[in-house]
Design a protein around this nucleic acid. Structure first.
Length: 399
RNA sequence: GGCGGAGUGUCCGAGUGGUUAAAGGAGACCGGCUGUAAACCGGUUGGCUCAGCCUACGUAGGUUCGAAUCCUACCUCCGCCA
């Protein structure tokens, strides 16, 4: 592991150092120190790696922090290698929990990988992106896999802080999880990575990749960690499984609305991580609105941004129905309201009754009484029913 | 292979024969206040043909007037020893 095929010592020119510094803006760490400047000294484009397991199809704002940094590398003339972890996803990455995730079938992975790529290109430059699937090299002969396993020690793997904690807490660590860094590290060997990016939570894996590269007598990559974006709850990291994410393909109104629901305390972070600018000094409401507009603009367009804000004002400030309410057709007469609400909004009938009992159902802005459960069709036909604050549906009688 | 421990509602977690649809918390939802922020206040939170009924405490059986609680088998997970 002491092999140093390329000289890690040596000085970089001031120019390279300046460029390395510029590339590191906004990152948490760039390791080892000065390594990136040295790599830049070569004068040839670097191969910058990002690995993603396509367990969910959607890219959310959390991903865009790292993707934005990749884009910066591209704009500087470097080559991005996007690795889709189709192999690792198929095996079923157990990361974190004791309950193993259901294995994903190949079709789902394929589909996720495709939509994921498409969405990634909303940020990345397609021309300077090489997309690779890691099954290409990880689906290897057992002898080769064993050879890979022989190149790392258990002690190295257990160094990981996270594992130590979980051992102590008597939480399970699957063997696969333990080996995961090896597989990820091998990705770096396979694609000759010069730089690997990831969130701060990836620090161990990224650095482990360096060890693996060295074990294969390859030049070692440098690593750069990016801050983790908190979710809309302001507490946990943004993640699909926590339901606190904003997806890059969400419709403008929804995107804007979710941005508005981010706690004030996280605004500064959102500005820096998503726009790369400090939050303006014009009050939380204003700067949050601007953040929302700019993000909608980025992922849709400026007209959509204006409309999204108008929608927000209409529905949540003035408490009016949105302009484009979906239509729900019903054919019963009289209508049993709990049943209709259940069908229209996808909730259970019991829940519909409860909400109704709490004054949470309105017809054209008027609260419907909880006692009345049945209505003549004519009294609902062509009326907008509202469930809670944000769910609307236009009822239409169709026989 | 041996020994020990555990599986409860969306999640965490109490409950060891009887007002238990199951304490408490988190989350979520509704209402109030408001900037769809936070904080705060009140309410709800299995389903249904809803003053009643049905289904629920890993799975399948059994004991009992009555079980999440006792018994048997099985499944899954964790730890210790080898």
């Amino acid at each position: 592991m002491q092999v140093r095929p390329n000289n890690e010592q040596g000085d970089a020119s001031p120019g390279s150092r300046a460029r390395a510094e510029a590339l590191a803006v906004g990152s948490v760490e760039a390791l080892p120190a000065r390594r990136l400047a040295q790599q830049l000294e070569r004068g040839t484009p670097l191969r910058v790696k990002l690995g993603i397991d396509p367990t969910a199809p959607d890219i959310h704002f959390g991903h865009t922090v790292v993707l934005g940094k990749l884009r910066q590398f591209q704009d500087d003339g470097h080559q991005v290698v996007l690795i889709i972890g189709d192999y690792t996803a198929r095996v079923g990455d157990p990361s974190g929990r004791s309950n193993q995730r259901p294995m994903l079938d190949p079709e789902t992975i394929e589909r996720n990988a495709n939509t994921f790529q498409e969405q990634a290109f909303k940020i990345l430059d397609r021309e300077r992106t090489e997309v690779r699937f890691n099954s290409e090299w990880l689906r290897m002969e057992p002898e080769n896999l064993l050879d890979l396993l022989a190149r790392a020690t258990v002690a190295q793997l257990l160094e990981r802080d996270d594992f130590a904690k979980r051992m102590k807490a008597e939480e399970p660590i699957s063997a696969l999880e333990l080996l995961y860094p090896l597989l990820q590290g091998y990705d770096s060997v396979a694609i000759d990575a010069d730089v690997e990016l990831g969130g701060t939570d990836q620090k161990f894996n990224l650095l482990f990749g360096r060890s693996i590269q060295a074990a294969y007598d390859r030049p070692q990559q440098s690593v750069m960690t990016m801050p983790i974006l908190p979710g809309t709850d302001g507490v946990r990291r943004m993640s699909k499984s926590f339901g606190n994410y904003i997806g890059v393909t969400e419709p403008p109104e929804q995107m804007f609305g979710k941005v508005m629901s981010v706690p004030d305390a996280n605004l500064e972070e959102y500005w820096l991580l998503l726009l790369g600018e400090p939050q303006p000094e014009d009050g939380p409401n204003q700067s949050k609105r601007e953040l929302g507009r700019r993000l909608v603009e980025r992922f849709h367009d400026s007209a959509a941004a204006v409309e999204a804000e108008e929608h927000f004002n209409r529905v949540f400030v003035r408490h009016e129905a949105p302009t484009d309410v979906e239509t729900f057709s019903f054919s019963q007469d009289p209508v049993h309201l709990p049943a209709a609400l259940s069908d229209a909004f996808g909730i259970s009938r019991s829940e519909a009754r409860r909400v109704l009992g709490q004054g949470g159902v309105k017809r054209e802005g008027q609260v419907l009484p909880s006692e009345q459960l049945d209505y003549p069709a004519a009294e609902l036909d062509d009326h907008v029913l509202q469930l809670g604050k944000r769910r609307f549906m236009r009822f239409r009688f169709a026989d």
